[in-house]
Simulated assay, not measured.
Amino acid sequence: MKRLPLPKPESRSYALLQALIAGPGTFYQIAERAGFDIEEAGIEHRLRMIFARGIQGHVRVSGILYELKDASRDAMLGIKPSLQGQVAAPHFRGVAGAMPVLVVRRHAAEARP
């Protein structure tokens, strides 16, 4: 899965993501942590628009709490994603062994629609 790009460091979105590193919170808690004054003219509306978009897809909402997604938290902290590869085919689930198999055959006339 491709990681979403982080917002520019000088943007409001980035400041809100920095505030979310400390942990989940409500709209007002996160705005306060980020240092935004909700009383300032127009700032609450602008922040609500940023939150409505999930802060560019980096946040999930649980009830009234916003929390940073794990991949986004790692990106904010500079943790590189581990390289995960497929070890075995999707149908392989452990040690292979002999198992009984039931084979069902249809008549040729039934097989055609």
Rank of each mutant, 00 (worst) to 15 (best):
G42V: 02
H107K: 14
R3M: 15
R60W: 10
I30H: 03
R60T: 14
F51Y: 13
R33Q: 02
A71N: 09
D37S: 10
A108M: 13
A22M: 04
K8I: 08
G97R: 05
D37K: 13
D70E: 15
R3G: 12
G63Y: 04
P113H: 07
L83E: 09
I50G: 03
E32Y: 01
Q84V: 14
P5S: 14
R33S: 07
L17C: 04
D70I: 09
A98I: 00
K8P: 08
A52I: 06
P5Q: 12
A98P: 02
E44A: 14
R46F: 03
H58G: 08
H107W: 10
A19N: 06
I30L: 14
A111T: 12
A75I: 04
R106H: 13
H91D: 14
G97N: 04
V87T: 00
Q18W: 01
R33K: 07
A52L: 11
F36W: 07
Y28P: 01
V104W: 01
G97W: 03
P7M: 11
E10W: 05
A41R: 10
D70A: 15
K2N: 15
P9D: 12
I64V: 15
H107Y: 05
G78M: 03
G23R: 02
G57D: 14
R106F: 11
L83K: 03
L47P: 06
I79E: 06
L68K: 03
K2T: 12
L4F: 08
P81F: 00
R73V: 09
F36P: 06
I79L: 07
G78S: 03
E39R: 12
L83P: 00
H91L: 10
R106Y: 13
G23Q: 03
L20A: 04
K80E: 06
R12L: 03
I55K: 03
G94T: 02
A15T: 04
F92G: 00
R48Y: 04
H91R: 03
L65K: 10
Q18G: 02
R60D: 14
E67C: 15
G57L: 11
G35Q: 01
E39A: 12
A108R: 15
P100T: 05
L6R: 07
A15L: 11
F27W: 05
L16I: 07
K2W: 04
P90F: 02
Q56Y: 07
A15M: 08
Q86C: 05
I43N: 06
G63W: 03
L4Y: 07
Q84K: 12
G23F: 01
M49F: 09
Q84Y: 00
E40Q: 11
A108E: 15
R112F: 13
A75F: 02
G97Y: 02
D74W: 01
G23I: 03
P5M: 11
G54V: 10
Q29Y: 01
P5K: 10
E44T: 12
A41M: 11
H91M: 07
A52K: 15
G63E: 15
A96K: 00
H58Y: 10
A88K: 07
